[in-house]
Each structure stands twice: as C-alpha cells, then as structure tokens.
Computed example of a mutant assay.
Amino acid sequence: MGQKIEFMVVDDHPLFRQGLVSVIENYERYKVIGEANTIDEAIKIVDAHPPQILLVDISLHHENGLELVKIVHSTHPTTFQLVVSMYDEIIYASNALKAGAQGYVMKQEAPETLMQAIETVLNGKIYLSQSMHERLLASLISQDTKKPQVDPITQLSVRELEVFRLIGQGFGVSEIASALNLSGKTINVYRDNIRHKLSITDAGALRKFAIKWMQSREM
C-alpha cells in the first residue's frame, strides 16, 4: 500500500473533533497526524509537519478560523484546506474561499458528503454544496443585469457577522463583548462598521434589522 494522505483537524469541540478523526481514519489511505483547538496550536503543528489537507472550523475559542486559513495559505500553499463548520455556507463559504480554502462543508452533513468534499479538494477542485454552486452561478449571471441582487450581509467580515448575529439574538454591547472576549469599545467599532456597510442610520435601526434578519433565517 502507498503512502497515506496526511490530515490535520482543527476544531475546539473535542467530541466533534474525535468523531471527525474517526470518520477519516476509517479509510486506510488516510491518516490524521495532528489535532488542535486554537490557531497557535495549529500553526506549530503545521510548521513542524505540514499535512496534505487541513480541516478547520471557523469558531476556535473566540478566534476566527479563517485567519488560520489565510496564514496556512500564505506559509504552506501546497496544503489543501477544507472548512468544516456549523455556520451557514451561504454567508461564510465565499469568505472561506477568499481566505484560501478549497472548499466548505456544513457540520450537519452526512459523513459521505464530508468524504466527497475531501476527495474533491484532494483532486484539486473546489467543493461547495449544489445549492451554493447554483447561487454563485446565479450571482455571475446577475452581473450582466442592470441591478444585480446581492445580499448586503455578504459584505460583512466573519467577526462583523458574529456581532451582527448576536445583536439579532437580542444581546447588548456588554453581553456581546463578554461572549466574544472583546472590549465594549471594540464591539462599538464593529457595530459602526456594520451600520455603514448596511447603510443603516443608527444602532436602534440596526438592532431591528438584525432581529428581523435572524428571524428570517429560522423560518
């Protein structure tokens, strides 16, 4: 048997991470050579022994996993990266690809879908769900129209979207700051950035818009 394809798994939920390792190592030609739950841990392992493919979550103990994707893409460009996350693909997939990932798969997908995503990425192709492929195609087509329909939420960075979601869940500045381990001043900066990007005049209007948007996602 030939040399095994080496994986690394980065996720801050131990049970999910262990389950992911188990699914991967059910295949004889795959081997997990490292696990991490923070960006610093992951970088140390990757620098010491770069895997052929890195599976990474977006949320890592209040850190942004896409920052890890950017770093690895810059320092180890031959390492494939697949984002495996609970966060909505429609919102985050584009940012993941821009950061340097080769694919995006939701955590709730079946193991068979995950393995299909892994195989696709290892073959040098981009993996997205069928619905996301169709959405991107529709977006490309809409560029030829006079007024393409673009969801303004896609303008937000990953951290801005986290703040926006928490606003939509009814949390105040101090609560959001505590949840994200940031200062209230920093949250206010993010909130102002969000308002400008969404062309919303004040914090009250932003709160109403965020709550309405969150409710629409739950339908």
Rank of each mutant, 00 (worst) to 15 (best):
K98M: 12
H61E: 05
N193W: 08
Q52M: 13
A48H: 06
L136G: 03
Q116G: 10
G34C: 07
Q155T: 15
Y190W: 12
V105S: 02
W213S: 15
V56C: 10
L122P: 04
M1P: 12
F16M: 11
L182F: 09
R217P: 02
G204Y: 03
E25G: 01
D202C: 05
V83N: 05
H196W: 00
E63C: 01
N26R: 11
Q3K: 12
D12G: 06
L54I: 15
V9P: 00
Y30L: 07
T38A: 15
K70C: 01
E218M: 08
P148L: 02
V46A: 04
L68H: 03
E41K: 13
E89I: 09
A205R: 09
T38G: 02
S94Y: 11
Y190E: 13
M132L: 14
R17H: 05
V69L: 02
H61V: 03
G34V: 01
A110P: 06
N37Y: 08
H196L: 07
S129M: 04
K98F: 05
E35Q: 15
D11F: 11
V163I: 13
L68W: 04
G172Y: 11
R135A: 13
L68P: 04
Q52S: 05
A101F: 14
Q215G: 06
A48M: 06
P148I: 05
G100W: 00
E134L: 15
H61N: 12
L55D: 00
V105W: 08
Q116S: 10
P50Q: 13
Q52W: 01
H133D: 04
P111S: 03
L54G: 14
L156P: 08
Y127A: 09
I187H: 09
I153F: 09
H61C: 09
S59T: 12
V32Y: 08
Y104Q: 08
E6V: 13
E160D: 11
Q3L: 10
T79I: 03
K125P: 01
F16D: 02
G168L: 06
S199V: 07
H13E: 13
Y30V: 00
A205G: 02
Y92V: 05
I211F: 03
A205K: 10
E218V: 03
F7Q: 04
D202A: 00
I24W: 01
Y190K: 13
E63I: 14
D192F: 11
L114P: 03
E119N: 12
L182R: 15
L68T: 00
M132Y: 10
V9F: 02
K31N: 14
L20Q: 14
T75N: 05
D40E: 09
S142L: 02
G184F: 00
L66P: 02
I90A: 11
D12P: 08
K31P: 07
V9D: 01
Y190L: 08
K197L: 12
L198K: 01
M106F: 07
K31E: 09
Q52A: 03
I43R: 04
K125H: 07
K4S: 05
F164W: 07
E160Y: 07
F164E: 10
S174T: 06
L122Q: 15
L128S: 07
L114V: 05
A96D: 01
H196F: 04
L198V: 14
K70T: 05
E28L: 02
